[in-house]
Design a protein around this nucleic acid. Sequence first.
RNA 1: GCGCCCGUAGCUCAGCGGAUAGAGCGUCUGUCUUCGGAACAGAAAGUCGGCGGUUCGAAUCCGUCCGGGCGUACCA
Length: 544
Amino acid sequence: MQQISELIEAKVLELFAIEARVDLTRPEEQYGDFATNIALQIAKQLNKNPREIADEIASSLHHDEIFKAEVAGPGFINITLSDQGLLRLANQETAKGREGAVVVIETNNPNPFKAMHIGHAFNSILGDTLANFLEASGAITHRVSYHGDIGLHVGKSMYSLLRFVEGDAGKLDTVRQEDRNSFISRMYAEGSQAYKEDPSAKAEIDELTKQSFTREDTLYSAVYQKVFDWSFEQIDINVARLGNKPIKRRFLESEAESSGVSMVRDNVPDVFQESDGALVFKGSEHGSFDNVFVSSRGTGLYAARDLGLIKLKNEQFHPRRSYIVTAEEQRSYFVGVIAAAELCLPDTNGQTLNISTGTVKLSTGKMSSRDGEVVEISWLFDQIAEAIRVRGGEPDEALIAGVLRYEFLKVRIGSDVVFDVNEAVSLQGNSGPYLQYAHARARSILSKKEPSTDQISELSEGERSLVRKISEYNVVVIRSIEELMPHHIANYLYELAQEFNRFYENNRVIDDGRQDVRLNLVNKYANTLKNGLDLLGIYAPESM
RNA sequence: GCGCCCGUAGCUCAGCGGAUAGAGCGUCUGUCUUCGGAACAGAAAGUCGGCGGUUCGAAUCCGUCCGGGCGUACCA
């Protein structure tokens, strides 16, 4: 493909003395394998009819044996490769645009002391997938996580927990392991409600929140530690169930806090200024908004912690790039935090990038969750498993994760995801299971007979369509990885699987006269699909 | 008010300077004694929010208006 572009560029230079950049696109199949609009682009400066220009270029290209060139429409040059040329294209390797660069990326950040919900799942899956992309492009990738182990949500949970244990932390042992998820979730919900409705509870919770920073009281500390451990046990389980790869280092807000607050103090008044007793960063001068980093009480706020976290990551990894995936409401906030960090730590300049996602909204369909506010991840797992069972399938973990991953990865990063459980769980059409099924089907054929020959001379129409689609893989993947936009791959893989299913309907493989050729193509297809699914972190099953 | 994001088929979304605007779901009609039907083929359905502009060419770029979301100092 690169050669074809260069060939045409050379012809344009030769015929018209113009140095132009020729971009090839993949047009609809009826037009050929590649197309370029170069004639339309240079028509004006040549003051010539674009079709004439296209004709000249096209006829000069005709000699080459690997393709034919035709002019169509207002002046497009459509290029069709020989079957051999197309097949060769289907075998290329992907490029390594980040070879050797050290990068850090947060791949999950649910908080302990409260339930993990669907929004956490979204960010986790996205972060993990982008980490796959970074790795695929050759970067030395460190997956990390970041969690809020201090603050108001801890106070709320501790309020209910201390009531539950009635002075004896040992009472927590009566909670069975399989109930811990919902137990933690209930404790938080109750504390949250009390905080809202009962002024005396609110005062108590504020006090318990302060204690989350120090944890000096022995009962508090014992309860805290136990539920902290449970929380991470559950977080690890749930994150793994999403299909995420393990993280290298877990960061906590408490450690980021101490690092961040001292950093802020050290940079007064150059970076931060005192205002009403608080330490403030004038983000409005840096494309953000003025924001308090250290409160007038002297405690670090969220921004100070994020600042400290940037420092900790830099010290530990010295990354070329550090990625933080968050919801869009934090977009402008992070512009400020990153600007402040770069002023305090000049060697982190250009290092930290905030990728902001849309929000997960719930459709108005039959969406039930215990408190009506959030959809807990464990509930969602159950719903998907049930849907698979209803269909007569085995709800193994890989399938469940595939449903969620694909649902979140198929939309462009930044746009909102309206999550409809019923639809996600329908397992039909443009869905994770469709792709997994399309893979299992192909592998099923291959398990009956192995492909032998790699000698393919001529392709039938249906075969050629499949090869044509396979040959698009590299371009799509390179673009997707470069832009860190998973949806390009997701959409491509769906089209690829559709193409295969079409092929499958009309082309008998085993015991057909063209068995050897077709086995080879099925093998190519299955490997291509698997590679793509691997990048998305979706398991490609041999059977299901 | 100011800043950022978004308005594409009934619904959910791709397409982000080019050839008749695509897909899934939903609706309607078919295929079906299957190398695994979680499939395939087809139909109906769109003033690409409105209006201007740039361009040989605009859903795509620019302006403006309308409509929605988020943010806008001691929450996270």
